[in-house]
Design a protein around this nucleic acid. Sequence first.
DNA 1: AATTAGCACTCTGTATGTTTAAGTGCTAAT
DNA 2: ATTAGCACTTAAACATACAGAGTGCTAATT
Lengths: 360, 360
Amino acid sequence: MKNLEEKAEKFNYSDLNERSREILLGIVEGYFGTASPVGSKFIAENSKLNLSSASIRNIMALLEEAGYIFQPHFSAGRIPTAKGYKFYVDSLMKTEKISLKEKENIEIRLSSSNRDLNGILNQVSILLSDLSHYAGVVLAPDMSEANLLHIEFIRIKEKNILAIIVFANGITENKSFYITKDIKQNELTRYSNKLNEIIERKNCSLDDLKEIITEEMHSDKEIFSSILNKEIFSSIGNVSGYRDYEHYDNCLYVGPEGDLIEEPEFSNNEQIKFLIKTISDKKNIIKLLGHTKNSKTKQIFIGSEEEWSEISGLSLITAPYISEANMLRGSIGIIGPLRMNYSHVIPIIDFVSEFLSGII
Amino acid sequence: MKNLEEKAEKFNYSDLNERSREILLGIVEGYFGTASPVGSKFIAENSKLNLSSASIRNIMALLEEAGYIFQPHFSAGRIPTAKGYKFYVDSLMKTEKISLKEKENIEIRLSSSNRDLNGILNQVSILLSDLSHYAGVVLAPDMSEANLLHIEFIRIKEKNILAIIVFANGITENKSFYITKDIKQNELTRYSNKLNEIIERKNCSLDDLKEIITEEMHSDKEIFSSILNKEIFSSIGNVSGYRDYEHYDNCLYVGPEGDLIEEPEFSNNEQIKFLIKTISDKKNIIKLLGHTKNSKTKQIFIGSEEEWSEISGLSLITAPYISEANMLRGSIGIIGPLRMNYSHVIPIIDFVSEFLSGII
DNA sequence: AATTAGCACTCTGTATGTTTAAGTGCTAAT
DNA sequence: ATTAGCACTTAAACATACAGAGTGCTAATT
């Protein structure tokens, strides 16, 4: 059938014609509804197109040849491929508007008085799960560039110091560490007073502070020539575990996946196990969310054998959140089946990422 | 068969005779190994008892009548009931000793320099999962009775204050809140200096501090008659979310359940869903861990239809951890199948709870 | 009196064959 | 260019047969 191949070759992103688009849309949305393969008869009866099932079949053969849909077995209907979903999301889908009720829900749940970073991000992951009925995930921001408000050192016991770092947005980080020589509390206090004075004067980030101190060391030798600088600052230098993948438990928040396992694609035992393992393996999800954190726009990862195989059979919708004032960057996402309700989930992701950007 | 009933009636905890004990042990351990019902022939061949399968069958009928074992269907072997497991754990089991390698592993992984409570408890939950190959859970302690080391108030913005509370063990809590009238930073500093002076003098807990302030208010009106006391103290009064079940996300840490779903009891789809939902529903687990937190000893919850039905089909082994010095109390646990490797898991729970008691 | 060999019986799981329903691709007619 | 019609393919549902595991009971044995 050379003819078929030739025709199919023309089916790329730019020039799927109106009829093919309509049929692909019918297959994707039909599959969303029933979770089972969509046949030509169904399309013939349910689409605007006034065509017989036989004509639909001809076009379906083309769409299959071009890689947008496939048959699980010979006499079954069609299911969208990753390419098919992608085309749907990019060109066919009409996103719903987020409802006022949902908006209010989000605002109420994220306006708690708690300003602890852990608490907020954890809450967001749960919120995303609740709203989408899939699994919400949140990647914590790297705080090293955020503006500081206050630093405090407290002597816990001999040679053991606790650093409390408060950022301008009210978010705090604690870090305890050991030094080689004991320092009394009042000396620590003098040191932190000095740092706070610099912070107030210069309105700077942790990274900035490091540089400034190196300069000022010369002018105020009494305080800055001690072991304080070297040891303390190398310890508090890497707050917010994100940089080291060793401690990746601290930088990814995963909401409950309870509703997700009820989806029909997870009625098979192997698939449910793959789902659980995929969600448990934070490394992969961090990697994908990392992509988005460093980009500036929403991204959609559709897992297939060829691309994003680490989430093969699953879809991950992500968006970055950015606090301009503090240079904070992180990302949020929702993990669901390929057959995800994209038009509902995407506005949620958009709104939450925007709202989160505002409050951190 | 009146005879059977009469004999079975005598089978209670105290007087299972040697032979019955041996057979029950054989069934429990046989079932541990194969995950499928154990028949009389298997016992006849694998136990010390030199009896024919027919004799074994007679006793099995008694054990069944007494409720220690049951048959999933007429011509199947026997499976222990919850009562059977309980008897095994209480009277038949010989616990293994924890290996030196495991001990070292635990010590290394819990000796990180990070003194953040979240970090430690999260790490423990993961550690328990890793060691047991089931799901580790950790209930956070209620900090209201722990001795204080330091309190600090920082003005974030107008009418918005951040309280940093450092406990004597180096664990910190942060809480941001709003007050009705703005207070300048230097007044806040004076106030916290006063509190820290009391803390140093009296070596007290947050609850104690509340009382002391009420007394001292009269002697130092300038500081203590302000709105500081009423508003600030009512805000920092309830640290550590444990008391309010609303925020139960903050007080339970659940380790990865990845290995657990590979157990043969979860090959059925409904069971795997029940497992995921049970583990996701933190409320129930908090309730059970709460039992142990307030008791002083290890506890084993064996979920059946009648008892602990919230974890029906699962087993939860728990132990409290207690820091005598700070009056801190919490509990840890491992969730697994009924057919759990109790003799291996129990020493792990014991060691980890003891070690954790030592470091917090 | 306790134990056991032997046997009929029950139930599950697997293999096998049959039927039904859904859906296709192709050809010939419109 | 479209469609009606048809032969073909496959999965799923159902029925049947059968082997295997394990039981309870009875009669024989120790």
